[in-house]
């Protein structure tokens, strides 16, 4: 059974995660995509580092701003580096990602929620948190 790299790029087939469907100028187009991803990711990272120490934002709003920037940057990585698209050839990849995001959200969100409530319901433990405790 012969199998080549280019065969997989034919139309009407699924795309492997990480593979990019290049139509047109091939490598130059690919390099442009990675450059765009690099610039966007660098910009979002710089904004995150600036915001974390910036006096211009209400302190309680900083975590929300950082979260938004991080989610945006993860999106940039997924689109420009991992080449996830909304096209039909990517349905399987995106569905798997959606399931992964669901589990990650359940684990992190659920843990933080439950532990916050448990801490809230605990008796004060100030005497146990010292170095001798």
């Amino acid at each position: 059974m012969t199998e080549t790299f280019d065969h997989e790029h034919g139309s009407g087939e699924d795309t492997a995660p990480g593979d990019e469907r290049l139509d047109g100028s091939g490598v130059a187009q690919g390099i442009r995509g990675y450059l765009m991803g690099l610039l966007l990711a660098a910009g979002l990272t710089a904004a995150s580092f600036y915001l974390a120490q910036s006096p211009w934002i209400w302190p309680h709003g900083v975590p929300a701003a950082l979260t938004a920037l991080a989610i945006g940057q993860m999106g940039v990585h997924l689109v420009f580096f991992l080449h996830l698209t909304t096209g039909p050839d990517n349905t399987n990849n995106v569905l798997a990602l959606a399931f992964g995001v669901l589990i990650v959200g359940l684990i992190i969100g659920g843990t933080v929620w439950i532990m916050y409530n448990m801490n809230h319901n605990m008796a004060p433990m100030a005497h146990m948190t010292g170095p001798s405790g």
Partner: peptide, 8 residues
């Protein structure tokens, strides 16, 4: 194709 299965 194998590349799709492996990548997936």
């Amino acid at each position: 194709g194998k590349r799709i299965v492996v990548g997936y």
